[in-house]
Design a protein around this nucleic acid. Structure first.
Length: 420
RNA sequence: GGAGGGGUGCCCGAGUGGUUAAAGGGGACGGACUGUAAAUCCGUUGGCUUAGCCUACGUUGGUUCGAAUCCAACCCCCUCCA
């Protein structure tokens, strides 16, 4: 299935985002016929989505770009259950307040990826708590539950390892896939939503929704999954030292985000350019031809383009400039992440270890700072820290009025005396 | 409710009375080499006011000069039986 007729599937295909489609021919035809409404659901388990979610969100973006209507489904209801798919243990249950707070902070990021509104191709956002919270147990079981075969549910890959490893698998979690299936039905009824997309790990859950739609409403619904995106070395996307690379600016600055992409492995650059930017394929082909250290040019383009989508063009370019000054010109970029300090405190002298740990958070503890110093990993104003008892004072301020702390070659934070 | 098995550091996993802040592996971080890449090699990987002290092997209490290791009770998980 390589030649799709619809712009939508062709685009996703070119971008390497199609893993499985439930009925590719029919979906392709549907998308040619007219606007299709499709959704992706997001769990509200953290205050922000992270890089690992970005490929998914790009699918919704591309859906809209090709004239269709995206629905962002906030999992306000399903997050109360917790998706057991491919997990070997139950995750801790989040309380309602936490979920609500997460929803508020997660919401904002989608506006960067697509336009919301009341128009035909405008994206909309709904929360499945709206209908799930109101379900009545017995009626739900009779209307919906009877269509699910436990035998079948137990056969899904997504729960197989859980069962084989004999790990606890609660009835609560077992219901997740039923609720997700019901979401699909509900969205089909409310918005004529015909397609559910997601990561390849969602295939089983989505198929359940399709079958439910057929059995209950006689509707043909579709599934489309994106391959699980890992790095060439097999790591999941978005994991770094400090944890996940978040999409919310207050949890990962545009600079940090830019750096994440800048450090992409050579093998991944072309694939990532396709997935995480809107750059035309012709341009990507040009970048793909680069060899050796020239590949760094492609990485910069990737970083700037991906950052521009999430944080805006201006922030992306500033991040690029910051990186250029810091890494290529060896200059001091005053746009590096900055921590303020009391002038008073600086006058009294701040221990280097404290500066690296408590003050800037470059390392987790004084002990780690000590170890890093021993291993040559700490630098102040680009000079290695050899004496762990040293203190930082006003005398260490550069002509620019800051002190630059570095952990390794890549992580830099500026300390700036608080004005006034 | 009964019988048996199990709960160790970020994860996996060894350890069955002392030299154990706990082997080994993974991951992570740092260093070298490079191209802010990968691979490779080296180092580090509980906290602190670091020749010392504190906290730590499900929880609490006990035995002992000394416990992750022995005992008791409790909590949780798994399997089989009811």
């Amino acid at each position: 299935m390589t030649s799709y007729k619809s712009d939508f599937l062709r685009l996703l295909d070119q971008r390497g985002q199609i893993h499985q489609i439930s009925d590719a021919v029919a979906l392709d035809a549907l998308a040619v016929e007219g606007p299709v409404t499709a959704y992706i659901g997001y769990d509200l388990t953290a205050p922000s989505l992270h890089v690992g979610h970005m490929a998914n969100i790009m699918m919704l973006r591309r859906l809209q770009h090709t004239g269709h209507k995206p629905i962002v489904l906030m999992g306000g209801g399903t997050t109360k259950i917790g998706d057991p798919s491919f997990r070997n243990e139950q995750r801790p249950l989040l309380d309602d307040a936490r979920i609500k707070a997460n929803k508020e902070t997660i919401k904002s990021v989608f506006k960067q990826f697509m336009s919301f509104g009341d128009g035909a191709a405008d994206a909309i956002m709904v929360d499945n708590a709206e209908w799930l919270d109101r379900l009545e147990y017995v009626p739900f079981l009779r209307e919906i539950g009877r269509h699910f075969s436990v035998n079948r549910m137990l056969s899904f890959d997504s729960v197989k390892s859980r069962l084989e490893q004999e790990q606890p698998f609660s009835f609560l979690e077992f219901n997740y896939m039923i609720l997700q299936a019901y979401d699909f039905l509900e969205l089909k009824r409310r918005y004529d939503c015909r397609l559910q997309m997601g990561g390849s790990d969602q295939w089983g859950n989505i198929i359940n929704g399709i079958e439910l739609g057929r059995r209950v409403d006689g509707a043909q619904l579709f599934a489309l999954t994106c391959p699980l995106i890992t790095t060439a070395s097999g790591a999941k996307m978005g994991k770094t030292a400090g944890g996940a690379v978040w999409l919310n600016a207050d949890m990962a600055s545009p600079y940090v985000f830019w750096q994440y992409w800048r450090n992409t492995e050579d093998e991944d650059v072309v694939r990532f350019l396709k997935l995480f930017t809107d750059l035309p394929l012709i341009e990507i082909e040009r970048l793909a031809a680069l060899q050796g250290s020239e590949i760094n040019e492609a990485k910069k383009v990737l970083a700037t383009e991906a950052t521009a989508i999430v944080h805006g063009r201006a922030a992306a370019e500033e991040a690029e400039a910051t990186a250029r000054k810091t890494f290529e010109e060896g200059a001091l970029a005053d746009t590096l992440p900055t921590v303020e300090i009391d002038t008073e405190a600086l006058r009294n002298g701040v221990g280097v270890l404290t500066a690296f740990s408590e003050l800037t958070g470059l390392v987790a503890s004084n002990g780690e700072a000590r170890r890093q110093a021993k291993g040559g990993g700490l630098r102040v104003n680009d000079r290695q820290v050899t004496d762990e008892r040293a203190t930082l004072t006003a005398a260490d301020l550069t002509p620019e009025g800051v002190i630059k702390l570095s952990l390794g070659r890549k992580k830099h934070v500026l300390i700036r005396p608080r004005a006034g």
